[in-house]
């Protein structure tokens, strides 16, 4: 029995989903913290963005982040396909039991796909112009460092109501994905013993609500002109 084999059994594949999922949750926390600087000031946000873009250690972690996202997506889609194939003849009657099982727990692939589509748009809005094409206005921070004016880019992008609505749909999909995902990852990693089960379930929901409300507040405040 080798390492590769351990992670390609059904439980092993779920462990990969759980590990990468919790890693992505950690990233969300950092991302949310850094972006919340927009509520403080233009310079605070641009300085934080400059730190994230120029620190070598963070740029290396960024590679890990992309690897994590890709692994999570590919493994998730593979598992969904494999699991679907385990029941060739389906039931004739409606088996949805929403009373005992919430709809989002059964819709992880759909919600995950929505988040993935959102990510493609999101990355092309901000990450690509900032890291690849460099077509952003320059600005000077109070300490004299020249950097990209990502704050201005956010203001520009979120002038379109369609974009704002698409972002809100993306963030809502993420929230419901996490409602199940956070607890599910903990369960897969065996953390949900009798003692911690309810705590982890509650923590996952509170975490996703807070983080996703903060994310949702960003395009809304940019569009409404609450931050400047």
């Amino acid at each position: 029995m080798n390492w590769k084999h351990y992670f390609t059994t059904s439980v092993g594949r779920k462990l990969v989903m759980g590990f990468t999922g919790l890693f992505l949750v950690l990233f969300l926390l950092v991302h949310c913290y850094v972006n919340s600087m927009i509520f403080i000031s233009r310079n605070a946000f641009n300085a934080a963005a400059d730190f994230m873009g120029t620190t070598v250690a963070i740029r290396i972690m960024e590679i890990g982040l992309f690897a994590g996202i890709i692994l999570h997506i590919i493994q998730g889609l593979m598992l969904a396909r494999m699991n679907k194939a385990k029941r060739s003849i389906g039931y004739a009657t409606n088996t949805t039991n929403t009373k005992q099982v919430p709809w989002y727990s059964r819709s992880m692939t759909l919600l995950g796909t929505l988040v993935m589509l959102f990510l493609i748009m999101h990355i092309s809005h901000f990450w690509v112009p900032s890291r690849i094409t460099h077509d952003l206005n320059a600005t000077k921070l109070p300490n004299g460092v020249e950097t990209h004016d990502l704050f201005q880019k956010m203001l520009d992008v979120f002038q379109s109501p369609i974009v704002v609505v698409l972002y809100l749909i993306g963030v809502a999909s993420l929230a419901f994905h996490l409602f199940h995902g956070f607890f599910s990852a903990c369960q897969t990693m065996g953390l949900t013993s009798h003692k911690y089960k309810n705590f982890l379930k509650g923590f996952g929901i509170v975490f996703s609500v807070i983080v996703c409300l903060l994310f949702a507040a960003m395009p809304i405040s940019m569009y409404m002109g609450w931050v400047a």
């Binding site: 059904s10 594949r13 779920k14 494999m82 039991n97 005992q100 199940h180 065996g190 013993s193």
Partner: peptide, 27 residues
């Protein structure tokens, strides 16, 4: 058999009330 998505329909359908905590233990 498929893999576990921690949905919980198994626990809801079990005539003997076997708990999902067993799946966490197995993991």
């Amino acid at each position: 058999f498929g893999s576990c998505s921690n949905i919980g329909l198994c626990e809801a359908s079990c005539p003997k009330g076997i708990s999902l905590e067993n799946i966490a233990r197995l993991n």
